[in-house]
Amino acid sequence: MSDRSTSEPITVVGLLADPNLPGELATRLADGLPQVLSARLDVPRTWRVETVVEPFEANDRGEGALDRARERVRRTRWDVAVCLTDVPAKSSGVPVVAQVGERERVAVISVPALGGVRLLPRVRDAVVDLVGRLLGIDAAPAARRPTRRTALLHEPGATTEDTDETVVTQRGSLRLLAGMVRTNRPWRLTLGLSAALAGAAAGSAFGLLYSNLWELAAALDVWRLALAFVGSLAIFVFWLIVGHRLWERTGPERGLGRLLNLGTVLTLTVGTGVFSLVLLVLNSAVASVIIPVDYLAQVLGRPVGVAEYGRIVVLATIMGLVAGAVGSGLEDDATVRQVAYGHRQQDRRDLAARLETVSEEE
């Protein structure tokens, strides 16, 4: 350590994060955060960052995320703590970006409220802003000009005071909804639907191998095929929700409950949409190999081209999606339920209870 760093006070910043995406973000932030804090906060200080990933937000002590964060950080020697959770919150019907406890120097960031794009830079900016705020340190001159990312915490009128706590809010449920879908990570759902993929492959094979279905596909109007394709996606999503009990009952915050369910539906829609695109590509490759042009022209009784192949592939994909929806009922509940906040929180409560039991035994 240099002479300059040894003469400066050391400030320990704790990053406490829920598992899954918040934990991944905290881990990625930790390495470069001391340098960012030194560059953006106007104070000579040595920064040290410690990261803990555990389901602090699932602990039922206290009334809210900030209370549970306070309970957890009391066991640490951090100078300031910033906690990351993927659980959305609202205050007076407005999405909550962060909850700040000035006295204990603790803040909780609701990651979904930061949106669905450029998430890591936004979380980094929010963490730096909150650390400076809790320690009473002004931003360095070079960092005082707010960017579009930091505007989430700097817009005038975005905070409401309540004793020593501050709730930072930001209008825009669409941003929150996009952040919820991003936090649910729908691509993981797509990768986990192995049983559904097997069913979809069987259904698609039936559509690609039977000449009667070729004739039907060629006879259907484009709008009928499009409507059937959308309907098959809706069946898939509905089957996942019902088969794995993903619909969450609305609690006291009815608006937030509806938003949670809407986020689940959109996540499933994105996930099944990616699933259908993969199936379309696979069916196109198979159709180009196993259906000869001459034989298809003989069956249809006219010259054929890309349009006829496209109709057959779409119809086969529709059949595959319906079969995949049935096959999704055989999927492991844990794989599918990770897209629903309520089930994810229940898993974290179980983990938190186990960790607390182990701690008491030690």
Results as ranks from 00 to 15, higher is better:
163 T>C: 08
55 P>I: 07
276 S>N: 06
125 D>P: 06
250 T>V: 14
233 L>S: 13
219 A>F: 07
136 G>V: 04
169 T>C: 12
297 A>V: 13
275 F>M: 14
149 R>Q: 15
1 M>S: 13
181 V>N: 12
250 T>W: 07
23 G>A: 10
306 V>C: 00
202 A>H: 04
267 T>H: 10
126 A>H: 05
254 R>G: 15
110 S>E: 08
81 A>K: 01
258 R>H: 12
213 L>V: 15
327 G>F: 11
145 R>W: 05
4 R>L: 14
213 L>E: 01
157 G>K: 05
101 G>P: 02
214 W>L: 01
264 T>H: 07
332 D>G: 00
341 Y>S: 13
93 G>F: 08
306 V>H: 01
291 I>F: 09
328 S>W: 05
246 L>F: 09
150 T>V: 11
225 L>Q: 02
296 L>V: 10
102 E>V: 11
208 L>R: 07
243 G>I: 04
353 A>L: 09
302 R>S: 12
59 N>W: 09
285 A>W: 12
210 Y>R: 13
173 S>W: 15
2 S>E: 08
81 A>G: 00
323 A>C: 14
2 S>M: 03
260 L>A: 01
272 T>N: 07
72 R>E: 07
32 G>I: 09
203 G>W: 01
205 A>N: 04
355 L>K: 10
228 A>I: 01
42 D>I: 05
46 T>C: 06
286 V>D: 01
15 L>T: 10
310 G>S: 05
325 A>L: 11
200 A>C: 09
80 V>T: 14
88 P>S: 10
172 G>C: 12
317 T>F: 02
84 L>V: 00
355 L>F: 07
156 P>A: 04
204 S>G: 15
340 A>K: 06
346 Q>A: 12
160 T>W: 06
91 S>D: 12
22 P>N: 10
111 V>A: 02
323 A>E: 06
261 N>L: 08
95 P>E: 05
174 L>R: 15
329 G>E: 02
319 M>I: 07
310 G>F: 03
7 S>T: 08
146 P>F: 11
47 W>I: 00
25 L>D: 00
54 E>P: 14
285 A>N: 05
269 T>H: 02
121 P>K: 13
57 E>Q: 04
196 A>V: 13
126 A>S: 15
29 L>Y: 04
338 Q>F: 08
285 A>Y: 12
315 L>C: 04
37 L>Q: 11
169 T>Q: 11
15 L>F: 08
8 E>R: 13
48 R>S: 14
94 V>E: 04
68 R>D: 03
309 Y>F: 05
58 A>M: 03
51 T>K: 09
269 T>D: 02
63 E>K: 07
106 V>C: 03
261 N>C: 11
17 A>P: 02
69 A>M: 02
191 L>V: 12
232 S>W: 02
92 S>M: 10
301 G>I: 08
69 A>S: 00
204 S>R: 05
18 D>P: 03
345 Q>C: 04
232 S>Q: 07
319 M>S: 06
335 T>S: 12
38 S>Y: 05
260 L>F: 07
190 T>D: 07
62 G>Y: 02
236 F>A: 04
15 L>Y: 03
301 G>Y: 08
335 T>G: 05
13 V>K: 01
